[in-house]
Nucleic acid binder design. Structure first.
Lengths: 227, 227
DNA sequence: CTAATAGTGTCTCTTAGACACTATAAA
DNA sequence: TTTATAGTGTCTAAGAGACACTATTAG
C-alpha cells in the first residue's frame, strides 16, 4: 500500500543483547546471512514482520528468539537511529532495543551468536557500534539510580555478588553499608527462604531473588529536587 | 527499492510541541489536511522526506518549521511508537520528538496551529494522546534533575520566574533557598550584565539567561549511588 | 582454635529543607 | 517612612560514606 509520494525508509529492529560474565560485559553478535555485510557480525536484528509482529517490542522479542534463542527477562526500547547514511541500501530506521540476560540463561554453544566483551568491539557494520555505545551508556546510567543490574543476576544471588555486578558496571568500588541501604530502600529483591550460600569456610551469605513484580519494572531511588 | 519480502511499515515523525503560558503547559495541535482524520487536530507530523531529510532529527525540525513555523531551542527524541493498530492505514512507526519553546517565540496568529492546555486535551486521533502523555511525563521527570525548564523561559528571566516554571511543571511549591542552590550547582544560567527587573515597588531582581553551551545540552544534578 | 567472608552499629560529614533576616527598589 | 519582593545566613534533620565490630561457617 503506497500512501504518499515519498520513498519510504527501510525499517528494522536491532537488539543490543548483553550479559555479564566474570566481570566482563559481553555483547551478542549475530552473523548476517545476506547482503549488505553478509557474513559479518552485527547486532541481532531484522525487518519488522508486519504480518506477525503486533508492535515493535514483539518484533524485538521475536528477533531475540529467532537469532539468539533467548527470551530476555529485560528488554527496553533504547532509541531510534534513522537517517540516510547509516545503511547502504538507503534511508533507514533502526528501532533499537537493549536486553539484559543472566549468564545462566545463555546456551554457550549456540552457533548463531558469538559473545564479545563490549570493550573489545572496535568496529561493526552500519552504525551498530554507535548503537552499542548508547546501550552501554544507558545501562551505566540506570545503574546509578535503579535496580536494573539485578537483571544480570541469576535466579538467586548474594548481596556481595550483586554489589560486584554494580561495581563492574560502574567501574568503581562501592561501600558495603551504603550499597545495602540503597538496595533495601529500592525494595526490588527478597531473601530466598532458607537460601544460604553454604560450602565456603566462612559465614554463609543469604541468597536473594528478584521480587515478582520486577519482571519488567525497575525500582529507582528518589530523585526529587526540593520541597 | 524493495529489499525484502515483507510489507514495509509506514514511517512518520510526530512532534509534541509545548510551551508554558500563565502557568499552563500548552500543546500545539495541527489540522490534518488529508485522510485519515482529515480536518482533525493532531500532533504536527508527517512523512520522512527521504530526498531532503538527512536524519530523523532533521525531519522533526522541518516538520516544526513547515507545520508550526517554529525553530525550537530544544528538540529531543521521545520514543518510537510502532505497531499494527495505531494507524488505520496499517503497520506504522511514529518516531516521536518533543520540543519546548518559550512563549515569546510563538506567533499567536499562525492559522496552522492551535494551542490547548495539555490537561484539557481528552482525545486525539491515532495514539497521539498516549504520545502526549509520554512527553509530559518526560518533561516532568527531567524537571526533577535537570535544567530542562529553562528552555521554556524567554531570553532573560529572574530566578523567581524560573522557580515558578519548575513549580508549575511539578505541581508543587519549592523552597527558595534550596531551589537556588540547586540551580547554581547546575551552572546552566548566568546573570545578564546590568540586567535588573526594574519598575516594581520593591528590590529589583537580577535577570538571567541560558549559558551559551546550553543550546541543546542539559545540565543535571549528581545522581551517583555511593562511593 | 584460625581464617575468611557475611552482616550490622554507629560516628561523622555533607546536604537538603526551613525559615528568618537583610537588601533595595517605588511610592 | 512603608510595602513588597530579592537575595542570603544559618540552624536542624536526614542521609551518605567510612569503618569498625560482631556473626557464622569450614577446617
Amino acid at each position: 500500500m503506497r500512501t504518499n509520494d515519498f520513498v519510504q525508509p527501510i525499517v528494522t529492529v536491532d537488539v543490543v543483547l548483553m550479559t555479564l560474565v566474570e566481570g566482563d560485559l559481553l555483547l551478542a553478535l549475530a552473523k548476517r546471512d545476506r547482503e549488505p555485510f553478509a557474513g559479518d557480525w552485527t547486532l541481532p536484528g531484522g525487518w519488522v514482520h508486519t504480518d506477525e509482529d503486533e508492535d515493535a517490542l514483539a518484533a524485538a522479542e521475536r528477533i531475540l528468539k529467532d537469532k539468539a534463542g533467548i527470551k530476555s527477562p529485560y528488554l527496553e526500547q533504547l532509541f531510534s537511529f534513522a537517517g540516510r547514511h547509516r545503511d547502504p541500501r538507503g534511508w533507514s530506521v533502526s528501532i533499537a532495543y537493549y536486553a539484559l540476560v543472566p549468564h545462566e540463561l545463555i546456551k554457550d554453544n549456540d552457533p548463531r551468536v558469538t559473545w564479545r566483551a563490549v570493550t573489545d568491539v572496535k568496529s561493526m557494520p552500519f552504525d551498530h557500534l554507535s548503537i552499542v555505545k548508547h546501550a552501554v551508556e544507558r545501562v551505566r546510567s540506570k545503574t546509578l539510580y535503579s535496580s536494573l543490574p539485578i537483571m544480570l543476576c541469576g535466579s538467586s544471588f548474594t548481596l556481595t555478588e550483586l554489589q560486584s555486578v554494580y561495581e563492574q558496571l560502574l567501574g568503581t568500588t562501592l561501600d558495603k553499608r551504603s550499597f545495602r541501604r540503597r538496595i533495601e530502600e529500592m525494595d526490588a529483591i527478597e531473601p530466598v527462604p532458607g537460601g544460604l550460600a553454604r560450602g565456603a569456610a566462612h559465614r554463609p551469605a543469604q541468597r536473594y531473588r528478584r521480587k515478582r513484580r520486577f519482571g519488567g519494572q525497575l525500582a529507582v531511588v528518589d530523585r526529587s529536587v526540593t520541597t
